[in-house]
């Protein structure tokens, strides 16, 4: 199949950048989207042109590295999917596919489609961990946790930090990411000792990094590859109030 890629090219953080069009032939429907970009890069190498810089690691939908904006949506046309799990069969022969990097003041472009997501790391550093040494895994029944509670914590823990929530949010809010990390730990007994400090410091860091506020458009939960529910944000809001009162 043959498609026209319109891809954001930007030499470096200070370069202005622009969309460039590439007609690519010889693709198959079985190719993943990233393989199609690999194919395009091989053609560029043969033509002695600079290859398109894009991020990836596992290519099996669990690492969260491959985030790009495809045809106006984070990770492409499907809901709840990473870019690496997107295949060319989702497009038609002759399609034009617009590929852009995540857009957010807190995610500056490094090159082409690669953005700097270290703002997320700095939020994590503020408290998305447990300070005490827990040793090896304890005996399973030593700390009884209701199934519902552990399920909710696990659902929140599924966040892979890809940044699709920030990318798709019109306000570049990191509320879904931060709430997932907070609720994961604050919902479990191990995380409870530091719950108020964690909420206060992680949400404060979110603000320092320049992310916007959540206005509940709901776009983030549709684009999140792990299907993290927006209800996590409401729960985080409750925890912020709780931390102000009891923290």
């Amino acid at each position: 199949m043959k498609v026209t890629f319109k891809i954001w090219r930007q030499e470096g953080p200070d370069d202005k950048g622009a969309i460039r069009a590439y007609e690519v032939d010889g693709l198959t429907e079985d190719m993943s989207f990233l393989e199609a970009l690999d194919h395009l890069n091989e053609l560029l190498v043969l033509k002695d042109e600079k290859v398109i810089a894009f991020e990836y690691d596992c290519r099996e939908g669990i690492c969260g590295q491959c985030g790009v904006f495809i045809n106006g949506r984070a990770h492409g046309p499907h809901d709840n999917m990473t870019t690496c799990q997107l295949h060319m069969r989702s497009f038609k022969d002759g399609d034009t596919i617009v590929v852009e990097p995540w857009r957010a003041a807190s995610f500056p472009v490094i090159k082409d489609l690669i953005v700097d997501r270290s703002a997320f790391d700095r939020i994590i550093e503020q408290g998305a961990f447990i300070s005490s040494k827990t040793g090896t895994a304890p005996e399973a029944n030593a700390i009884p946790i209701p199934k519902e509670v552990s399920d909710r914590a696990m659902d929140a823990a599924a966040c892979i930090g890809c940044g699709a929530c920030v990318a798709t949010c019109k306000n570049s809010s990191a509320a879904l990411f931060t709430s997932a990390k907070i609720n994961h730990l604050n919902g479990l007994p191990q995380g409870r000792a530091e719950e108020h400090k964690r909420v206060a410091e992680m949400t404060y860091q979110m603000e320092i990094e320049g992310f916007g506020s959540c206005t509940f458009t709901g776009a983030c939960e549709v684009e999140c590859p792990e299907g993290i529910s927006i209800i996590n944000i409401a729960e985080m809001n409750a925890r912020v109030t709780k931390s102000k009162v009891f923290g």
Binding site: R103, G210, T217, G218
Partner: peptide, 22 residues
């Protein structure tokens, strides 16, 4: 919020993931 997203997307299909109102 505008400051948090200074550069808009060339193509944005927000209709597919959220309501126009929101």
């Amino acid at each position: 919020n505008r400051k948090a997203k200074p550069q808009k997307y060339v193509m944005n299909s927000s209709r597919e993931n959220s309501t126009w109102t929101s």
